[in-house]
């Protein structure tokens, strides 16, 4: 653990006291506290202060709503959405960028939110599955997935739909083979692939505004 001063925030000059120094003190305190409830309580209070030091500010827009809050740097965008904003439509299927269930749009580009830290998305506009319908009016891709039965269990579905919308917008849905290749980053273990491909081709050909 280093003793360096922390530099963070949006520019290179914002300085804080080293969090690690602080934690060293507080964990030494906690180590003393093995048997004493009173000291345990004190450590717990310290813990709250520690938490404050561990977090850094984050401005992020999710589904059109601006959020201004503090978050630990180690929180992934996926966990941030699911556990902090309670937007559980974005799914955790592997947590290692190997399945695509966590696909969201960051500034319009589809990404795996499990391999991005929330703080790396400072100032970005994130769109999740909860943000694509207009009120009760489903997004054309959502409707097409229902029409073509493009899912079974539904767990990979939000990622598939977010990926599918991007696939068309990127210009990668010109034929079935292209759709299959460019949708291969989204695993569906129920095996709804042919129906998903049908849904995407239909939306592509339908000339909808995505």
């Amino acid at each position: 653990m280093s003793k360096e001063k922390i530099i963070h925030c949006k520019n290179d000059s914002c300085l804080h006291e080293g969090r690690r120094d602080f934690l060293k003190k507080s964990s030494a305190l906690a180590a003393l506290a093995v048997a004493s409830p009173a000291i345990l309580k004190a450590a717990e209070d310290d813990e709250k202060i520690a938490a404050w030091f561990e977090k850094i500010p984050l401005q992020i827009e999710v589904n059109g709503i601006a959020h201004n809050l503090n978050v630990e740097p180690r929180v992934t965008l996926l966990d941030f959405l699911r556990e902090y904003l309670h937007l559980t439509g974005t799914k955790k299927g592997c947590d290692h960028g190997q399945c695509g269930a966590c696909t969201v749009h960051a500034d319009g580009k589809r990404i795996n939110s499990c391999l991005s830290l929330a703080v790396m998305n400072e100032g970005k506009k994130i769109t999740t599955i909860e943000g694509i319908a207009k009120g009760d009016k489903l997004h054309p891709m959502q409707e097409a997935f229902i029409r073509h039965d493009g899912f079974q269990c539904g767990y990979c579905t939000p990622g598939q739909i977010m990926s599918a919308i991007a696939c068309i917008k990127e210009g990668h849905a010109n034929n079935e083979d292209e759709v299959r290749e460019f949708m291969s980053g989204n695993i569906c273990r129920c095996g709804a692939y042919p129906n998903i491909a049908d849904a995407i081709i239909e939306v592509k050909n339908g000339g909808y505004e995505l």
């Binding site: 925030c9 290179d12 180690r74």
Partner: peptide
């Protein structure tokens, strides 16, 4: 571990911060 996090906006700053860390 809850690592520290720094955003840098120039190559020089990047190199400097890494040198210190």
């Amino acid at each position: 571990i809850n690592f520290e996090y720094t955003r840098v906006s120039s190559v020089k700053a990047a190199i400097d911060v890494l040198a210190k860390n």
